[in-house]
Nucleic acid binder design. Structure first.
Length: 584
RNA sequence: GCUCUCGUAGUUCAAUGGAUAGAACAGAGCUCUUCUAAGGCUUUGAUGUAGGUUCGAUUCCUGCCGAGAGCACCA
């Protein structure tokens, strides 16, 4: 149990209050080690109760005086302080009232040394939490479509999904990871049409597929004759009736999927299962037809639709008038397969771009009507888009940056930054790959998911300031210290006499709480913010303190802090999918 | 037109209804014969607008202004 948990519980039980108050780490150290707004929250509740029961002839302002509690949050805080002091636990060294009614709490400085000792002992497992263990989460987060390119938007989805998955795992849950690929559907037909009309024969590669899609998509919109041809091709893809198309299809699909594997490998994401629309489509079609009879779906203009208006949403088509399943029906089929394979589960998460928000609300509703047992178990996590300074990316116009290109460009930039002359070209290559991916993942995960990211390649290349490499670099320096000290100074988590607790130690102790909050909110950016602050604090520590010093008795403890820093950073960066080079 | 999301330093982002709104980049200045300067230190600078709720609002509610996304057979 962390100190945070202990203190929260202590306040809760001692004051006999609900747990809806906040126990935070104040930004300003003069506000103690912990601060809580419990008095302000409770005051609010008391006045509300009194407001609703104002007896005749009285004014509600008098309310608090009737119960003889307090006239304002500050006075209530004073009362609480008294109760807390009478029931003090060992960890707490002081309780103070401040400002409008905050209760600030200081803790025994020895606890920080204990935390350092503990981190050095348990290593990278320090942040793990077995508190809520045992839930099974399904998470689907990579939906690149075969026959189209894997662009930076897919990469964003992948990086976010992977970090959320790792966060959930860190809190003791089981996570099953899925990718989902649209290997059938109109976009495929567009690409096949493009391939046929591009005149490349069966000489396909990932590039010609991209061009073919852009061509097909353009003509689909501009030319009604082509539109009909593409719709015909789409039908043939579903029923596999055309040999020529089958050959192009199988080949193109395999080229795409192989390409995706390569990128997953590079990004470091691994999936428990790959799903394909070609398998979810027939299942979805069947289910939609079945639940048409049960009244969940209805017929309209030849199509089968779900009337979202009945729950304040909009109508979506599930089977088109040719009887083919749309994306919507495929989602129904997909969920059926997921349930068959991975039940029981507690939460099923789907990570997509936020342009699908409205669409997902409808699908979720339909899913809940088809599978009532899923009520409350579906979570749609949506993120923003990556925008170029020139505007939105579009694979239709070919105005698209592939993930591969971005990584390689960043890699080239970072390889030139390595100044260490002793590093071999091979090692430089490895370091640059880690730095490039670190920079990319950091820039995606540093902000709250949901917002768009304006991706400026020149800025990304600078690699200064808050960035992936900044975090990596701080760990590299810390590692160098440990290497150098080996055989010279013993590492000891025993706090020296007269030691003044540093902010670095305080931050290290918080790591488990940060992880817990990041997980609960599905918000990796809290972790990023924390690791950045932690690195910054380490870098200050590094420049102010002489760490390896045979003359100084504090050196052993300083090294223990450095070691703890490395563990926490390694663990945190691992969750973000950022690797740490040995040197850089 | 309807629905949803979003407006915070020059720029890119933080901030659990709380205390003096934090960083980074860019700008100005300082700092490598102590361990990696991809570092450290100092400094200039912000809540779109008008109301409301609250002891307290960047955060919640309403209007306005501005940006983006979605709205029937694409995914």
């Amino acid at each position: 149990m962390t100190i945070h948990h202990k203190i929260k519980k202590w306040i809760e039980e001692t004051l006999k209050v609900d747990k809806d108050f906040v126990l935070e780490y104040p930004a300003d150290p003069s506000h103690g080690d912990f601060a809580t707004n419990v008095a302000m929250v409770e005051y609010r509740k008391i006045s509300k109760i009194l407001d609703s029961n104002v007896p005749e002839g009285k004014h509600k302002e008098d309310g608090l005086r009737w119960v003889g509690e307090a006239n304002n949050p500050r006075e209530l805080a004073e009362k609480y302080k008294q109760i807390l002091e009478e029931n003090k636990i060992d960890e707490v060294s002081g309780v103070f009232v401040a400002g409008p009614g905050f209760i600030n709490i200081t803790i025994d400085p020895k606890l920080f040394a204990l935390a350092i000792e503990k981190i050095d002992k348990v290593g990278e497992t320090f942040g793990e939490n077995k508190h809520y263990a045992g839930s099974r989460f399904l998470i689907e987060y990579a939906q690149p479509n075969p026959f189209k390119e894997f662009h930076i938007g897919h990469m964003m989805n992948n990086v976010i999904g992977e970090s959320v998955a790792k966060l959930i795992e860190s809190q003791g849950n089981e996570v099953v990871r899925f990718s989902y690929h649209g290997d059938v559907g109109l976009h495929v037909a567009k690409t096949i049409w493009g391939v046929i009309n591009l005149g490349v024969g069966t000489n396909l590669n990932i590039k010609t597929l991209g061009q073919a899609y852009a061509l097909g998509a353009k003509f689909y919109e501009d030319d009604d004759v082509v539109k009909k041809e593409i719709i015909e091709i789409n039908k043939k893809i579903y029923d596999k009736s055309d040999q020529e198309i089958n050959i192009l299809y199988d080949k193109g699909r395999q080229i795409s999927l192989d390409d995706f594997e390569k990128i997953y490998e590079r990004l470091g994401s691994h999936f428990d299962h790959h799903f394909y629309e070609s398998e979810s489509a027939p299942v979805g079609k069947k289910l939609v037809e079945e639940f048409l009879e049960k009244g969940v779906f209805e017929k309209s203009e030849g199509a089968i639709i779900f009337k979202g208006e009945k729950v304040g949403l909009h109508t979506r088509v599930f089977l088109n008038s040719d009887g083919l399943p749309t994306y919507e029906a495929k989602e129904i089929g997909l969920m059926y397969i997921k349930k068959e394979k991975y039940s029981p589960f507690d939460i099923s998460i789907t990570v997509t771009a936020n342009e699908q928000d409205a669409f997902f609300k409808v699908v979720e509703k339909a899913l809940e009507e088809v599978f009532p047992e899923l009520n409350g178990k579906l979570l749609h996590l949506s993120h923003g888009l990556i925008k170029l300074p020139s505007g939105k990316m579009s694979s239709r116009t070919g105005d698209v940056l592939t993930a591969e290109w971005i990584i390689d460009t960043l890699k080239e930039g970072s390889i030139n930054k390595i100044r260490e002359p002793l590093i071999s070209p091979e090692e430089k290559e490895i370091i640059a790959e880690m730095v490039a991916l670190g920079a990319l993942k950091f820039s995606i995960l540093r902000q709250a998911i949901g917002g768009d990211i304006v991706f400026d390649i020149n800025k990304a290349l600078s690699l200064d300031g808050d960035s992936g490499p900044y975090l990596q670099y701080s760990v590299v320096r810390a590692e160098a210290l440990l290497r150098k000290s080996r055989g010279q100074i013993e590492i000891s988590g025993k706090q020296p006499e007269g030691w003044k607790v540093t902010l670095l130690e305080r931050l290290l102790e918080r790591f488990p709480s940060i992880l817990e909050r990041s997980t609960n909110e599905y918000a990796p950016h809290h972790l990023v913010t924390y690791l950045t602050a932690l690195s910054s604090e380490f870098n200050s520590f590094y420049s102010v303190e002489k760490i390896i010093d045979n003359e100084n008795v504090n050196s052993s403890y300083k090294l223990a802090i450095v070691k703890a820093f490395i563990y926490v950073m390694t663990s945190g960066l691992n969750i973000l999918g950022i690797k740490i080079p040995e040197r850089m």
